[in-house]
Design a binder for these strands. Sequence first.
DNA 1: CAATCGTTATTTGTATGATAATTAAGGACA
DNA 2: TGTCCTTAATTATCATACAAATAACGATTG
Lengths: 253, 253
Amino acid sequence: MKPGNLHQKKQLPKSNDSNLHRKVAQSIGNQILTGVYAPGAILPNEADWCRIYGASRTTVREAVKTLNAKGLLKSRTKIGSRVEPRENWNILDRDVLSWHIAAMDPREFFVSVQQVRKILEPEVAALAAVNRTSAQLRTISEAFEDMRSAKHGRDSVEPDVRFHLALLAAANNPLLSPFGIMIESALTNMFEFTSTHNPEPNVFIPRHESILKAVAKGNPSAARRAAQILLDDTDLTIAGFPKGTRAKKIRKT
Amino acid sequence: MKPGNLHQKKQLPKSNDSNLHRKVAQSIGNQILTGVYAPGAILPNEADWCRIYGASRTTVREAVKTLNAKGLLKSRTKIGSRVEPRENWNILDRDVLSWHIAAMDPREFFVSVQQVRKILEPEVAALAAVNRTSAQLRTISEAFEDMRSAKHGRDSVEPDVRFHLALLAAANNPLLSPFGIMIESALTNMFEFTSTHNPEPNVFIPRHESILKAVAKGNPSAARRAAQILLDDTDLTIAGFPKGTRAKKIRKT
DNA sequence: CAATCGTTATTTGTATGATAATTAAGGACA
DNA sequence: TGTCCTTAATTATCATACAAATAACGATTG
């Protein structure tokens, strides 16, 4: 990538979200996540960004404040904005995660996600089996029914996501909720692969049913085991992904 | 970089807490976290905030953008800013977490944290045992030595935090890094209790040493077990906390 | 020479006022 | 009753100016 021509206006991705400061934030965020500006680097100053995007300073500053708030930058007077070290990035923020996914090899992403999911989700299922309210159980159950009755594979993605998010919520630990975004991203993006490379998504229905039943019964160890089995199956699916394929961009509305 | 000064104290840059928009963001953020404005509620509009804080609209807007970026709000034209549902809050953001801690019963917080730590940290230790680089091992080891050589309890907090963060980093999974903030907050705030209510903090030294040795040897199951033991001990400490005590406010920079 | 102390220049921070864009809500009309 | 238009409330964007912080530089002095 060629740095240098600051006088040229950037092509901002057109999006239904017509907020200019949001687009600017996304553009800069993407450049950070793709390594155009590495941790420790000083970004162009506000005046430069104004020229680059043809936006007012107000707008640029709001974009920069957004990135500050997500831990990607730290701005100081007379210095400018410096890219923060990676460990300070709010990687589980919805925007940051989407930039991250767009920037990295999707296979690598799935490996990282599966590693975390295999640590968390069995225990989440176990906690849900113990801590769930009846309303939360109903939500999980509804998601499962919608998943089962989905005709096409793509129709089962949304209830599938809903199932896992409901399970996570039923664990009733607020510190776990940021993972909902990770799970959602993973399942949604994974569909881009499974739909094109995997003929039969219905194998997963009984796996989800086992989790649901265990949570309904209030049996934590059964829930834990059921979640582990589902994740092992998911591992196999991922292992079948062809190398070098790029995930299509999913536009969230 | 000179090779000799690995032990140099990290120069904390003078905190820019004097930023007005930051103060406004903190104030509004606190009010959201304490429930003054509940999820779904519409906040006062920008003009109101200007009057309330005596700040310009520019400043208020930057504060609101910050809160938007952290998932606490969503602003829309003609509507105003609405508080988002809790599950969208970036609870593992440094600011949001500190507001959260200030707003809730600290015992409750420790329970939530311990639940998550007991899920994650044993597996983190196991991953670190397998994935660590030698540089990462050195960092962990240095933290341990600093911890051991600390004279007073309060001097062992910083290396203790450093130990756990280094372990987390050594797991080499970027999706886990947001938990560093949680761990840091937990350990730092916990000291406010242990220092006043627990006479002997040195019990934990050998526990940490077991983890270090297992990670050094590259033995994941030993690392996992050692981490579990440490966390069980921590549970006991927390169980001894008197009820109703409030954590003192720790100002992190 | 080395260290100290102002001075200057650069960059972000804050303020003000104006206009545009979005859209909920209410009113006019068929 | 339902549709379409107008209005009003609020955020979004722009332009300009000045304030504050501070790194970099250079003069002064021991």
